[in-house]
């Protein structure tokens, strides 16, 4: 654990709490993309399945449970409790255009199989194990789902950014949410540089997806710094 990773995690937590509190206090989810929140719930669910199989630390377990819980609470508030305030007409990004390609990519490019090896596995011309069956510990499925979650997280904010560009504005509190979410990604990039130098840690899948994700926030960061500081709303 280094300071960049810790502050990154806390920044991520801050973003999630800010969004939950905003919806709860204003009794409204206007301007919030329910689709992005469903995608984030899917991200946490598929990534943290390892809660069931491996223990890393109390911190790790606690944060995972909180992230998952908050993600589902947010989806519940948007689609159930404050459904009447949900602006579905402006939340028109086609989420399947993200989930399907990301799903395909996670099968093709992951830490367990190269595409050719995967082809061999599904054709049962495999070397030492099939994907599922007696004696399987689900590690390959978990690995592919982990990869899926990494790829999906990198693009899950797109429905939210699309919604803002469509309506042409965002409430200040929504921009704070996006700022902390982007800050979390930027801090994780520094964390990976740190870990590469001091621990020799290098996870290409996480790093490439993380860079893509951070780039998606750059335009927003620019607007946030130049506009939000001076006005109540984010004009585009």
């Amino acid at each position: 654990m280094n300071i960049f990773r810790l502050t990154g995690d806390l920044s991520h937590l801050a973003a999630i709490i800010i969004l939950l509190l905003k919806i709860w206090k204003t009794r409204s989810c206007a301007g919030i993309s329910g689709k992005s929140q469903i995608l984030f719930a899917l991200v946490f669910t598929t990534r943290y399945l390892d809660l069931l199989t491996s223990y890393i630390s109390l911190y790790n377990t606690f944060m995972k449970v909180v992230y998952i819980g908050c993600a589902y609470a947010t989806v519940y508030l948007i689609y159930m409790k404050f459904k009447a305030t949900y602006d579905g007409n402006h939340d028109t990004f086609r989420a399947e255009f993200l989930v399907v390609p990301v799903g395909g990519l996670s099968f093709l490019v992951n830490h367990d199989f190269t595409p050719l090896e995967f082809l061999l596995v599904i054709m049962y011309v495999s070397y030492d194990m099939a994907l599922c069956g007696p004696g399987s510990n689900c590690s390959h499925c978990f690995q592919i789902l982990w990869t899926f979650s990494i790829y999906l997280e990198s693009v899950a904010i797109l429905p939210q950014l699309f919604m803002i560009s469509k309506t042409g504005e965002a409430e200040t509190i929504t921009t704070h949410y996006l700022f902390f979410l982007g800050l979390y990604r930027a801090l994780y990039l520094i964390n990976w540089i740190w870990r590469f130098y001091f621990e020799g840690f290098f996870d290409l899948i996480a790093i490439v997806a993380g860079v893509v994700q951070t780039i998606l926030y750059c335009d927003f960061f620019y607007l946030y710094v130049t506009k939000v500081v001076y006005s109540e709303r984010l004009p585009l």
Binding site: R47, I56, K64, G135, S136, A206
Partner: peptide, 10 residues
């Protein structure tokens, strides 16, 4: 190996 990869980051 069937040992699952451990991802320690959130």
């Amino acid at each position: 190996s069937t040992e699952p990869l451990r991802h320690d980051e959130l």
